[in-house]
Simulated scan of single mutants.
Amino acid sequence: MPHPCLTCGACCASFRVDFSVYESEIHGGRVPASLADEINDSICRMRGTDYARPRCAALTGTVGEKAACGIYEWRPSPCREFAAGSEACNRVRQRHGLPALESGLY
């Protein structure tokens, strides 16, 4: 069975994603500069996540059907730390009409 995140993408279409400028490739990190906006001297934001209906510019596919992160290996720390099956995960899955995941499985 494929990992549930490969068909989900709800988190990528629900949150503002802010991270340290040092995670951007401009400052020596790995997040592509074309996908990040510098907010101030210390914070960058993933493009597309600062809207009433966010959708990260790195998200490919269709939420709930087949979704993937186009920069998975280079994604910023908030994305790396987001846990599948967590309370926040299940809240956004519900918002997108998807069933909850069991916590701790992924």
Rank of each mutant, 00 (worst) to 15 (best):
V92E: 06
R30A: 14
Y22R: 14
A58D: 04
A36F: 07
C56F: 04
S14P: 01
S14E: 04
G9T: 07
P99F: 04
S86I: 09
L35G: 01
I39R: 12
P32W: 09
P32I: 12
R91T: 15
A33C: 01
F15P: 02
Y106K: 04
F19A: 01
N40Q: 08
P2T: 14
F82H: 15
R95P: 01
I43S: 04
A36E: 04
C44R: 00
A13R: 06
C79Q: 09
D18H: 09
P4C: 06
M1D: 11
S24H: 03
S34R: 15
L35N: 06
S86G: 07
E38F: 12
R75D: 08
A52S: 11
R45I: 01
L98A: 05
L35M: 12
G48D: 03
V63Y: 07
A67V: 03
E23M: 06
R93H: 03
C89D: 11
S24R: 08
C11I: 02
C89Y: 07
A52W: 05
E65P: 00
A68E: 14
L35H: 14
R53P: 03
C8K: 10
P32N: 12
L6S: 15
V92K: 02
F15A: 01
M1R: 07
D37S: 09
W74C: 12
P2H: 09
P54N: 01
R30H: 13
P76F: 01
Y72R: 08
I71C: 09
